[in-house]
Each structure stands twice: as C-alpha cells, then as structure tokens.
C-alpha cells in the first residue's frame, strides 16, 4: 500500500516531540563537545581560539594529573572486575541451586544498587569516620587493633582509594548478581540432567555447560562494570572529592574540575579522549569474549 506524503507528514507528528528534544539535548551536545575540543575557550568570552589538536596532545603527553585519575579509575575497575564480579558469580551460582529463600536473598542483594551514589557515599563516610565511625570502633574494641584508633580511612593516602573501592563494590555486586542469575536461569535444566546421566560431576557440569553458556552474559556484566566503574563520580564526590591530595580523583571529577575552572575547551577534549578509551576497552572485551566462545 502506497502512503501519501500527507500521511507521512502526519505520521511524523508521532516522533516530532522526541525528535526535537533528542536533537537539541542529545545530538547537538555531542557535536558541540567535538567542536569545543578543538578550541581554547573559557566559556564566557565571545572569542574562541582555534587550537586544532593542541589540547588533545597536551592531555595525552603533558598531563600527568589526568592520567593519574585514569589510573585511579583503572584500579577501581580492576578490583570490581575481579573481586566484585567474582563474588557476584559465586552468589548467583549459590542462589541458583534451588535454595530456600532465594527470593529474599535476591531482594537484599539488589538493595545497594537501588540506593543513590550520594546516599551510599555519605552513609559509608560516617561508617569510616576516624573518631565516630563504627568501623574503627569494631576494629579497636572487638578485635583489639589499637592502631586503628582515630584512623581516618578517607584522608589517609594509603587507604583512601581502596576504601572508596570497597564501597563501590558493595554497591555494585548486586547488579552483576541479578544479571548473572537471570543468565543462569536461561540454561535449560535437561542439559544438566543429561550430563548427570553421563556421569559428569559438578565441576565438569560447570566447565562444559554453565561456563560456556554464561560467557556472553559474563561479558555483558564485565562491560557494564567497566563503564560504570570508570565513570564513577557520585561516590567520589560524596566521600572524598578527589582527596587526599588528588589520590582518589577519577576522570569525571577531573573533567568537572576543569569545567568549573572555566577551561571548557580543555575539559571537552578530555571527555572525548576518555570516551574513546571507554569505547576501545568495551570493544576489546567483546572481541575477547567472541574468541573465547569459539
């Protein structure tokens, strides 16, 4: 059936509100970011100085502060990928054993992920508090570890980043757990029954049935973990604001800082470089998982 132009125009009305909003508030900002990254601009002056790739080069080769923040985010991400996702996988396997109360566990494990980053950060700031925090109280009075009396976890250079990472993982593991559990439940039960008949033990069943079928789901969880951990902001902002002495700064807190200091062009170049890093890492993960799946 041919549709008249008049009808097509009428149909356009359905997507018009979304389209207009999308172009103004999603598409235009992306293009604007790219454009700004080639200019030196303080956000106020009428005049913007075109500098080509100068800001990119400066960030890549002469900005240790930015790379330091990248390393910090990398540290958080690496621990999340291993410890947090390892825990999530273990819990998903345990709950999937048709255990009593599995729904209660599911509800409780997913509680931290629904809380806001600010709320989680501020609760844990209180828990970590050197003088009045319950963590030190337990360490000193229950375990007799005197060295933790008045120990300020979040202002000590040695512990601040790890302390934040623990909270990030506390908030994040439930998310991976839910997705992995859903993935496990899509594996047909009769595969295991057949394996049992053939005399496969639990480890063999895991190795030859569960693991290969779970790889795509695990890859997805890993990608979400990388994107979420690298772009961490709310937790850092509410717990340390990048301190002590920049030891918990991450890319987004730096980008925000540069923007607040009026270096709009420089901040956008940083955002784009960071976006490229995220894309490359995600693509690499998909590539590796495809290789593994063969």
């Amino acid at each position: 059936m041919r549709i008249s132009n008049k009808e097509k125009a009428y149909n356009m009305m359905f997507i018009a509100p979304a389209l207009i909003l999308f172009m103004v508030f999603n598409l235009y900002p992306i293009l604007r970011t790219i454009q700004l990254s080639f200019f030196e601009w303080n956000g106020i002056d009428r005049h913007m100085t075109f500098v080509g790739f100068q800001q990119y080069i400066d960030i890549l080769f002469y900005n240790p502060i930015f790379w330091r923040s990248m390393l910090n985010a990398g540290y958080i991400t690496l621990l999340s990928l291993t410890l947090q996702n390892g825990l999530a996988l273990m819990l998903a396997l345990l709950v999937n054993r048709q255990i009593r109360g599995d729904n209660i566990y599911r509800v409780i494990f997913f509680l931290p992920p629904v809380l806001s980053g600010i709320v989680v950060g501020l609760i844990w700031r209180f828990v970590y508090d050197g003088n009045h925090g319950i963590l030190n109280h337990v360490l000193v009075y229950t375990f007799g570890l005197e060295q933790f009396r008045d120990f300020a976890w979040l202002s000590e250079i040695r512990t601040a980043l790890s302390a934040v990472t623990v909270v990030h993982m506390w908030r994040g593991f439930g998310y991976g757990f839910i997705i992995l559990l859903a993935g496990l439940q899509t594996i047909p039960q009769d595969l295991y029954e057949a394996a049992e008949v053939d005399g496969a033990d639990a480890w063999q069943q895991f190795k030859y049935i569960t693991a290969p079928l779970l790889i795509p789901v695990f890859t997805l969880v890993s990608i979400l973990t990388v994107l979420g951990s690298m772009q961490i902001f709310d937790l850092i902002y509410s717990m340390t604001r990048g301190g002590p002495a920049g030891h918990t700064h991450v890319p987004i807190t730096r980008i925000y800082e540069y923007m607040s200091n009026g270096e709009f062009g420089y901040a956008t170049a940083m955002a784009i470089l960071f976006g490229i890093v995220l894309l490359v890492v995600s693509a690499a993960q998909i590539y590796v998982s495809k290789k593994l799946n063969r």
């Binding site: 992306i30 970011t33 772009q231 987004i252 980008i255 923007m259 901040a267 956008t268 955002a271 995220l278």
Partner: peptide, 8 residues
C-alpha cells in the same frame, strides 16, 4: 559512552 556531556 558519552562522558562529560554535562559540559555542552
């Protein structure tokens, strides 16, 4: 991923 879109 579009980090820093808050700037534009």
């Amino acid at each position: 991923p579009i980090p820093g879109v808050f700037i534009p």
